[in-house]
């Protein structure tokens, strides 16, 4: 099953409420995915700074670690967001390469990514989702089908700097695609099918494709059932497989564009009564962006 929620704000006045709105949407989708939940929030970018979201085992001295790189630190349960000067990023990456116990959840100018096991409401509360601000967010509630219930297997999956992917469905050719991508140097941490889709997009983008072209190519190369929602620094995209068994509904107003697996998750958004509601068409790439 699984539930997806995506919210892209056009009206910056709503930005302080982004986390609260995303939290409501994810909680409604608990019945579609009670195993684990996660979300990517695109907050404000600081000039010359880059953000690393890291996950560390209990007891790790994250404050001391952040201080080594002159990074500012924001701790959210077992996740921590380090903001540091871009020129220090390579040094941090080198240090992290020697520390396998620290998981790099996401990297980018604006993205912060959090995920964990448990009911969406508990996961959101652990990370303080309701208090987060930003311009757009992508969230997921998981009912595991293809691989184990672990934090690593929770969505979103990061696909590259400032990019993430969530998925509802199951891919049937993921083992084959994973093998091919591994030959191209893409690394995988799990046996999860969605991670393969994320790796596929990372690979296409690395080879120079634009995101919309990469998604269009995914229609050819990925076999199975999927609703994908991808987040980027400036917007979010939606793709459904040509058969489109998995549910999707979208709402657009002057203030926002929202995606949900079910209308129930949209029902509390402001101004939903007057929103343009539609079901995204099968096999069509949708994209919403705003000026960075």
């Amino acid at each position: 099953m699984c539930g997806i929620a995506g919210l892209f704000l056009k009206n910056s006045a709503l930005e302080p409420q982004l986390g609260a709105l995303m939290s409501q949407m994810l909680n409604v989708l608990t019945e579609r995915g009670p195993d684990s939940a996660g979300f990517a929030i695109y907050g404000a970018a600081a000039p010359g700074q880059v953000k690393f979201t890291l996950r560390a085992p209990a007891g790790f001295d994250m404050a001391g670690f952040a201080a080594r790189f002159g990074a500012s630190l924001s701790v959210h349960d077992d996740h921590a967001v380090l903001s540091l000067a871009q020129e220090k990023a390579a040094e941090l990456r080198n240090a992290l390469a020697k520390m396998p116990e620290i998981i790099v959840v996401s990297v980018g100018n604006r993205i912060e990514l959090f995920k964990g096991i448990g009911l969406p409401e508990e996961v959101g509360a652990r990370f303080g989702l309701a208090g987060m601000a930003g311009s757009h967010a992508v969230g997921h509630t998981r009912m595991a089908t293809e691989s184990a219930v672990t934090t690593e297997g929770a969505h979103p999956f990061s696909t590259g700097a400032d990019q993430c992917l969530v998925h509802n469905g199951s891919l049937s050719n993921h083992n084959d695609v994973r093998r091919r991508l591994m030959r191209e140097g893409i690394n995988f941490a799990t046996q999860n099918d969605t991670e393969v889709a994320a790796g596929y997009l990372s690979y296409k983008l690395r080879e120079g494709a634009k995101l919309d072209a990469a998604l269009t190519q995914a229609l050819e190369d990925l076999d199975g059932f999927y609703n994908f929602v991808v987040g980027t620094e400036t917007g979010f995209g939606v793709l459904r497989d040509p058969v489109s068994c998995k549910p999707a509904v979208m709402a657009e107003t002057d203030d926002y564009v929202a995606f949900a697996s079910e209308y129930r998750a949209l029902a509390d958004l402001p101004g939903i009564e007057a929103a343009h509601l539609f079901e995204p068409e099968p096999g069509r790439v949708y994209f919403w962006e705003r000026a960075a």
Partner: peptide, 9 residues
């Protein structure tokens, strides 16, 4: 049964 709007699949 009369649906005034759209119907899904």
């Amino acid at each position: 049964v009369h649906v005034k709007g759209d119907a899904s699949q």
